[in-house]
């Protein structure tokens, strides 16, 4: 029995942990921008960590249930209400058939994850239910949910316990100012030493153009490039390269002006130089940054990047242990 969508929120999409394996064809991995929050939401309602849930950005949807289920809301602080009564975030609660789930306004972060026991059971595309709107793939007809949609649920286990809660010290959110750790590389050599230093000392702010494809930043000094003879095929702008692949998390700076960090729905390649890449451990945080959030890029080396990755994996293990 499906969940009915009364109102959709701003850009609420169905997401799981994504569809690896097709980036070489321009189809990105996609999936939840804040993966730790999605995993936690699923574990709270007794789902597998990869089950499909809703990713709501800035504003929640209104959902009407036609069967009993367990729900948990994690990630950005978007307080749920059941028939108008407040419910806790990061805590599972029961919903009875006929009840309506809605949301208060967003208090912190940018994206909330709404997991429902059984998981959303729309048809997978290339092995994932994640919505990739640019390619009209996954989700409901390849798009964000709309009023009138009916979201099918997977088979439920015996009534999942309610009132399970993730301890506060295991809920992850970016600091303020946000810090994104960056491994310099790729086409780092294209900018001058002074510009390289400025990039890490300047304060940046998240620009309004911030979505699942990428986050743009403003407010730092423009980058200066090392002189060169443009290579054949690259283009005449000093920020151009012969069109190449873009790593997830890579930071491109078209014409040296505004850095763009590519995220889960990244364009897979293009003709702009990149000065480095946000490390994997910090990717989830980007999905929780609101426009205008002050952000610092912090230079790290591979050793630190791998240590941060291990620390993140330990946090996930602790979340699993706390919710097992």
């Amino acid at each position: 029995m499906p969940v009915k969508v009364n109102t959709a929120g701003l850009a609420t999409t169905i997401q799981d942990l994504g569809r690896p394996g097709y980036y070489h064809l321009g189809i990105p991995i996609g999936g939840a921008m804040d993966r730790l929050a999605l995993r936690a939401a699923n574990l709270l309602v007794g789902n597998g960590e990869n089950a499909a849930a809703l990713e709501a950005v800035f504003m929640g949807p209104e959902l009407e249930f036609t069967e009993d289920a367990t729900v948990a809301v994690t990630g950005g602080e978007l307080p749920p209400k059941l028939d108008g009564e407040p419910r806790e975030t990061w805590t599972s609660f029961r919903v009875k058939s006929g009840q309506v789930l809605s949301f208060d306004y967003l208090r912190a972060g940018a994206r909330a994850y709404i997991a429902i026991s059984g998981g959303i059971a729309t048809p997978p595309a290339l092995g994932s239910r994640s919505t990739y709107a640019i390619g009209a793939l996954g989700g409901v007809g390849g798009r964000a949910i709309q009023p009138g949609d009916a979201l099918p649920l997977g088979p439920q286990d015996e009534a999942t316990a309610e009132g399970r809660s993730l301890p506060a010290d295991l809920r992850r959110a970016p600091g303020n100012p946000a810090e994104l750790r960056v491994l310099p590389g790729l086409y780092w050599h294209r900018i001058t030493e002074a510009s390289g230093r400025n990039f890490f000392t300047d304060s940046w702010k998240v620009a309004p153009e911030a979505d699942r494809m990428g986050y743009r930043f403003q407010g730092g000094r423009a980058l200066e490039f090392v002189d060169r003879e443009p290579p054949f095929g690259a283009g005449s702008d000093p920020s151009n390269i012969t069109d190449a692949c873009y790593p997830y998390g890579s930071i491109q700076v078209p014409s040296g002006a505004e850095p763009i960090v590519l995220h889960r729905d990244a364009v897979s390649g293009g003709g702009y130089f990149m000065l480095g890449t946000v490390i994997s451990a910090d990717m989830d945080f980007i999905g929780q940054l609101q426009p205008h959030t002050e952000t610092k890029f912090v230079k790290v080396n591979m050793h630190t990047a791998l240590a941060a990755r291990r620390s993140r994996a330990q946090t996930l293990d602790q979340i699993r242990a706390a919710l097992s």
Partner: peptide, 19 residues
Amino acid sequence: YTFGGDEHIFVEVDEAMSL
């Protein structure tokens, strides 16, 4: 050869395009 964060290796065979 260069790293794209801790999950990618990027290899530029040539700066310029050619077959």
